[in-house]
Design a protein around this nucleic acid. Structure first.
Lengths: 226, 226
DNA sequence: ACCTGAACACCGTTCAAGT
DNA sequence: ACCTGAACACCGTTCAAGT
């Protein structure tokens, strides 16, 4: 009630100050979409209406900014998650929702897929995964191994997919070149490759991930029956 | 025998000319090791004793150079491959040998894991994979789906692993930070994560890939039994 | 026909200077 | 306490000029 605390707690106080939260918001805005280098300091600065180097006042370097962004993206992906009665359903849900959250911000996904944030969102995800694996009946040791396999499977493939999104039309050119180059190959030398190239090139990344995920989950289930 | 053709065909003719082969060799030399940006045009030029921009005389751009490099690496990985009597053994072999060939040149792996070379090495790999899947009894359509799942699993994870190699000690710092940050978390809130973090962090990437690969192969085998 | 070197538009990061 | 702007050492790529 005195002069110091009389400033009302309306959200717009210190609106022109930078602050970590405002910076992270601006970064997520920029990271929607598939522009490579969308997250350069110069572009973030422009988005914020501030000098690029002002960011160093709030984050030690690009790395720290990136990890904070990544954890935010994981947290957003965990919103609304509820464990299913079936452990396999929970695993599937987790490995789809974090992936799709990352793919909304491809630039964050490519840069942070191989990093450990060590922060809240990641903790939620890890706890949920381990909980599902415990429910499945895995021992603590086995659960740790299966978690790493699943987690890195998801992160590796998500980084891969995000890279494809950022490649954009270059990736489509690759697929076209795949078909046309195999068409010029002697069918006698590579009969299976030449016959199947169209079918293989037609597979879209998202269905491919889901198919591989089912294979992986199938392998995990098979492992439970000794 | 006349003056034009009298130059002996010893290997050292046009030794100072650049040529695609010499450039590719120099690139592979530079790409051994885990230096990020080892394959910049300026560094390649230095390695060759030529101006960086001279490369544009032999490759349209960095992309074309990269695809040629990637295909060379795949070809090297296929050397000595012989199909096993067991289809599962062949798949495993292929998905380990191409990975390990790429990981000898991490810089090539990160840059080219999500590209299609459309060239000879890739053709050999694709044909060998499809051949193993046909032996397993998969239909043409199913084989195409399983190939894409296996191929992209291998490429995605290999790109992931190469990225870890290039991160170097930063990646080790991440693992250390993983353990220490979870140690500061209330065990009541995240009991499983806090209990298992050491065990999870201890898993090495190579064993992790091999474990996940076995799960995937298990899932494929399970799928064959309807 | 092939190579050179200056130049352009970008990076992340540092640091002295401003307010 | 926070922000600015010039500077540094890098990128890939283009282009006029050399031989």
């Amino acid at each position: 009630m005195d002069q110091k605390e009389s400033v009302p707690t309306v959200p717009r106080r210190r609106a022109q100050g930078l602050g970590r939260e405002r910076i992270l918001e601006a970064c997520l805005n920029l990271a929607t979409g598939t522009t490579p280098d969308a997250l350069s300091f110069r572009k973030i600065g422009k988005e914020l209406g501030a000098d690029p180097t002002a960011l160093y006042r709030h984050f030690a370097d690009k790395d720290e900014l990136l990890l904070a962004l990544a954890d935010k993206v994981i947290s957003m992906g965990m919103i609304g998650y509820v464990p299913a009665p079936d452990w396999e359903e929970s695993l599937r849900d987790l490995m789809l929702r974090i992936r799709s959250s990352f793919l909304q911000y491809p630039q964050v996904a490519t840069l942070a897929a191989l990093r450990v944030t060590g922060q809240g969102g990641e903790l939620q995800f890890v706890e949920a995964m381990l909980s599902a694996l415990a429910l499945a009946g895995f021992s603590r040791h086995e659960a740790a191994l299966v978690f790493r396999a699943c987690g890195d499977f998801m992160l590796a493939w998500t980084g891969f997919s995000a890279g494809l999104l950022l490649l954009g039309q270059k990736s489509e050119q690759d697929d076209a070149a795949w078909v046309s180059s195999y068409d010029q190959v002697a069918e006698h030398d590579f009969p299976l490759a030449v016959t199947s190239v169209r079918e293989m090139a037609a597979v879209q990344d998202e269905e491919n991930y889901q198919f591989a995920l089912e294979l992986l989950l199938g392998g995990i289930a098979a492992r439970l029956q000794h």
